[in-house]
Simulated scan of single mutants.
Amino acid sequence: MIKGISFLRPAKTAADYGKLANFFSALGFTAGHGWDEPASRGASFLAPLANLEFVDGAMPSTADILVEVLHLDAVRETALTWLRSQVEGEADARITAIADTDWKSRTFTVTPIDGHSFTFWEWADPLKGKPVAVEGDLSAAGMRFAIVAARWNAVITERLLDGALDALLRSGAARRHIEIVRVPGAWEVAAAARTIADRVTPSRGPVDAIITLGCLIRGETAHYEAIYNEVARGIGQSQQETGIPHSFGVLTCETLEQALNRAGIKAGNKGFEAGVAAIEMVSLRRKLLESNSMDSNDREDA
């Protein structure tokens, strides 16, 4: 039955109201609906998790509103930058240094305007006893990629290609390390991807990941399903047998409108998502191989 918790903090003036709203926006809070009525207005900010806590004993030396974050140092730097842009000469006095607490956390307190203080904190041990997860990073620096893009349904695949390139370049990949291969249609994508995965030449060298892009739109026959099944099987088999990550950006849609929506109109760009997945899988693969190598060396030393 309980849906949510809201804490209301009155601002003394309209200027204070604007500054508080600007401060939380600068820190990256998601804006809620808020309200704007003749008698009052409210700026709402949302967080993924809210807690109502009661304390028996000594209260922690914090503000009465605590905000749990990840990357506390970066949050403090953002808050300090905001303060210096708003309260020249007083910024450093309105924010504390990051300090350890006796409840296994790190905190700092900031006062963006008089009468409104907030404590930001993160666990000193973010895992809190949970197993460490191995995950890929999203830096593409030094990685080599091949993009296999079908020409059929070019109005869609060109958008997917632009999205994939955007993801790679934004993440630090060098243009000279991105090879674009165009094939007639989705049917030919898997064969080209396998050739690239198997290829090692002095001029090109191996690629770290292959991004496959295409678009299949259902017609009035079973042709669509027959092609899709073989394309998916071929790309998956190439990845499994060569060990080189293949990200899947082949759209399978009922209509042209659905395809356009998934190529950047309404539902994001699946080419961009395929590019991000390729970067993460290259990073993850390197970490796993490095871990295997270290485990092997430890066994030999033993």
Rank of each mutant, 00 (worst) to 15 (best):
L8Q: 13
R9N: 13
A11I: 06
A21F: 02
G28A: 04
F29Y: 11
H33K: 15
H33N: 13
W35Q: 11
G42F: 03
G42C: 14
F45N: 08
A50S: 11
N51R: 14
N51F: 15
E53W: 10
V55H: 11
T62A: 07
T62H: 07
A63R: 05
E68P: 00
H71Y: 06
A74P: 06
A79M: 00
R84Q: 12
S85I: 03
Q86P: 01
D92F: 07
R94H: 09
A97Y: 07
T111L: 01
H116W: 10
H116P: 00
W121F: 14
D125S: 09
V132L: 14
M143G: 01
I147V: 15
R151E: 12
R151T: 12
W152T: 00
W152C: 03
I156C: 07
D166M: 06
G172F: 05
A173R: 08
R176N: 13
I178G: 04
I180A: 02
V181M: 06
W187L: 08
W187F: 15
W187K: 05
A191S: 13
V200L: 10
V200Y: 11
S203V: 14
S203M: 14
D208K: 10
C215E: 06
L216T: 02
E220Y: 01
H223F: 03
E225K: 09
Y228W: 13
I235C: 15
P245D: 10
C253F: 09
E254Q: 13
Q258L: 03
A267S: 12
G268K: 11
G268W: 11
G271T: 02
E273I: 10
G275F: 03
V276W: 04
V276I: 15
A277C: 10
A277K: 09
E280Q: 15
V282N: 02
N297M: 13
D298H: 13
D298M: 12
D301F: 12
